[in-house]
Design a protein around this nucleic acid. Sequence first.
DNA 1: GTGTCCATTTCGAGG
DNA 2: CCTCGAAGTGGACAC
Lengths: 236, 236
Amino acid sequence: MRLVVARCQVDYAGRLTAHLPMATRLIMVKSDSSVSIHADDRAYKPLNWMSPPCTLEVREPAQDEQAVVAELDDRLTQVWQVTGKDGDTLQIAIAEVLHDSSHDLGVDPGLQKDGVEAHLQELLAENPEVFGPGVRLVRREYMTAIGPVDLLCRTADGRHLAVEVKRRGEIDGVEQLTRYLELMRRDPLLGDVEGVFAAQQIKPQARVLATDRGIACVTVDYDALRGMDNADERLF
Amino acid sequence: MRLVVARCQVDYAGRLTAHLPMATRLIMVKSDSSVSIHADDRAYKPLNWMSPPCTLEVREPAQDEQAVVAELDDRLTQVWQVTGKDGDTLQIAIAEVLHDSSHDLGVDPGLQKDGVEAHLQELLAENPEVFGPGVRLVRREYMTAIGPVDLLCRTADGRHLAVEVKRRGEIDGVEQLTRYLELMRRDPLLGDVEGVFAAQQIKPQARVLATDRGIACVTVDYDALRGMDNADERLF
DNA sequence: GTGTCCATTTCGAGG
DNA sequence: CCTCGAAGTGGACAC
């Protein structure tokens, strides 16, 4: 990885045209040849970038390119031409290099994610009693015409529970469950179907909407659930 | 902006839990206190990050934290604790710092974009006759209960046109327009409303779906439209 | 503040 | 290969 801090102006031409006026920025060149340009704010998104695969070519600035920045009393020292696979180009015209260092980072072992919705759903499927005493799992990913309901359960007294599982409970999750419930309640085979909105955190507005629609809200303690799971393993 | 290249392991806890094993990476700390961690590939997205506002705290590694990496024959030298606004945390446990430099970049003048949907919509608003002879603009961003229609126009014979503008015409754009049309056709004030799907490119499936639903497809030549715009300026 | 939609979205799964 | 949908999406703008 090469890190260059430089006073530069940048022009991108591809799906759109974009221009960055002369200013000091970080230019990051990675070992897969991808290039990104960062300002001193915003963590996530670079100002400009070129995804791999792409090629980087350094050339002398042309005479007419000098004219563009001449009014700023600046002189271009080099121009980086980055060309992507779809013919899109990223041109970095550098006036002054303030820092330039290269680093051997090696291959990254990669990100391990945990606590995603799938795992939360898995844990809840193994512990349906969190929705009430005697509640049993009928099946996960119960298919309806408009998509799968996360969990379909059955209470001790024979009612069905349609459970929507989210990490963070927000309004769109309630809307989703509402659509499922509307469909499922038309199915005579299912009989009475109640909605349960289960999430690690439920936003106040989502809770209000859910309650208004007669949908029960269950906040799930992920670590406690994982603990129950471990306890189960130890007991049986 | 501070650039640190270090052998580190990273743990994020927030909307999900994520772990990066010990490896050499770039840690970028920006002047808005945001932090991002980059591997030596992928231009766009950091491996891990914390969006501003957030606070960075450096502390000594605890004894039990050493144990985690001890098997790797590594020793932690410092731990960076980054805390975000929603209580999510990013913990960067550093074994060895290979590079550390700070740079004053100043405020970036910002990106100037051209050719995005907003500009395309603007050009079409100024040239509604591309939708047919005598077509006039009623208004841009015509509000409906479920969102704004990009352009509402009126034909010479008094019918309304609801125009959805996209850079790339795909199926979801047709769906979006269909939802708008469904609502607008219930409005007696509007009378007859026809749908127009306008994009620089329209994918075959999107065109099929649109045609099936009686929605007209218009492919827009961006450069030609810009030319018309310039011609207009010269003529009047 | 919330709600909605765009993005050079990126990214991954599944057909 | 394409299509579909999620993302720690982020970001902008209307209300």
